[in-house]
Design a protein around this nucleic acid. Structure first.
Lengths: 235, 235
DNA sequence: AGGATGATATATCAACTCGATATATCGACG
DNA sequence: CGTCGATATATCGAGTTGATATATCATCCT
């Protein structure tokens, strides 16, 4: 799961670990707080598998000028020694390891994105993650993703409603919880329906006006000018 | 987290492992699918800690003469043994281990329920679980639970909105995802507000009409006839 | 009758995630 | 001038997950 997120981010450009965490937390909101205890092992994993390569950056700060801060003698002897050795203008922070995706990594990303990895699981995060990277999917696979999720939610809604029906055994708190869950699922489904509809529309137009898209073409396509909008809050 | 769920269920009556899983999956819907790899270790943990005790039942199914005397005590065991002796066709399943909560377990349950265990985490499940057991909380603690959750969600909403604002860098899929997340958070907050309001109202009435409730009284109270309703969908 | 499937029931394992903690550097604030 | 908070990497224990193994019984299919 994390692998997919990391590879997806690295698709865009190079990142170092701390940055990846920030992006996942601040931009997407999924993975509210990824722990470093997951992130760094995941990066090591991916590097061992040849999906990414890392390179050490000693510390290229924004401040290009080097005021040569006289070696803070009290600090760690080892660190002082190392920084003196490599002669870099240690202007900034600590040394970072930046990770870059490889061709193999790109291939693995496509596979992860297409399959429903945490199989069968009704996991909102795994869907959200895939949707955030949906631009890297071929249009048919995109529709498939949306429809699989819709089916999942439909199943959940059925279960929710069954609970509401048989809910006479619940106290008012539990009842309210179950009812709220039902409403949320309904809201999710109507959102998905809008997504699916606009996706269908766009794909039809694409077929009529644009060139024919090979059904097995999974390479990312950049159509930056366009905007197959989905917005529009429910009235 | 699981410990709380298990102890809460066992509050009601005895259960065996498989049954606990079913209840958590079917009734509440939280913990969509608890794995046995979590459940059985958790039960072993709780038993080692003295929070529960287990007893082996060779296998009294529903098809036995006496439909499981819900005495919750040794009576069930004995009856099962007798029914096997007197030629009943051993009608039942595999031997089960039923778990019963102890006084110590009840104490641990109160503590777990009151504290916000997975501390600081914006975890919907841990809140849902506590709400499902809210009847075991003293009224002030109940309000505290709701208000802590409200504060969490308010923070989340702020983050969501910040993402929507700065969202020009997103493609339409990600944008739609973030917008939907915002709407969901808003919905959650308005639900919580209704819960809080009705809880406040009820507690005021309780103070005026009913007997004085000792603030440290955390024992479960059963007021089965009443209904401090929260229902009422948003117009 | 027999055979496959699926529900009931307990248990274990590798892989993964999380929260806490340790280490180190740097800017800012009082 | 020391402490706080942000940047940055790394590791550890504990807990969760999904898969798998074992076993018994019921039910459906042939």
């Amino acid at each position: 799961m994390l692998d997919l997120a990391i590879l997806g981010l690295l698709q865009e450009r190079e990142f170092h670990g701390y940055e990846i965490r920030k992006r996942l937390r601040d931009d997407l909101g999924l993975f509210a707080n990824i722990s470093f205890g997951s992130l760094y092992p995941a990066l090591a994993r991916l590097e061992a598998a040849g999906a990414v390569v890392s390179s050490e950056l000693p510390g290229p700060g924004r401040r290009s000028a080097e005021p040569v801060p006289a070696t803070g003698s009290l600090g760690g002897e080892l660190a002082a020694f190392r920084s003196r050795r490599d002669g870099t203008p240690r202007g900034t922070k600590r040394a970072r390891k930046v990770y870059r995706i490889t061709d193999l990594g790109r291939k693995q990303f496509e596979e992860l994105l297409a399959s429903d990895e945490p199989a069968g699981t009704d996991d909102a995060r795994s869907f959200g993650l895939r949707l955030a990277f949906a631009r890297h999917l071929a249009p048919p696979a995109r529709l498939g993703l949306l429809e699989r999720r819709r089916a999942q939610l439909a199943g959940r809604l059925a279960a929710d409603r069954a609970r509401v029906e048989a809910g006479s055994a619940f106290d008012s708190y539990t009842r309210s919880l179950v009812e709220h869950s039902t409403e949320t699922t309904e809201h999710d489904i109507s959102w998905l329906d809008r997504l699916i509809e606009s996706e269908r529309l766009e794909q039809q137009q694409q077929q009529q006006t644009g060139p024919v898209v090979r059904p097995d073409d999974t390479r990312p396509r950049r159509r930056d000018g366009e905007d197959h909008t989905v917005k529009g809050t429910v009235p």
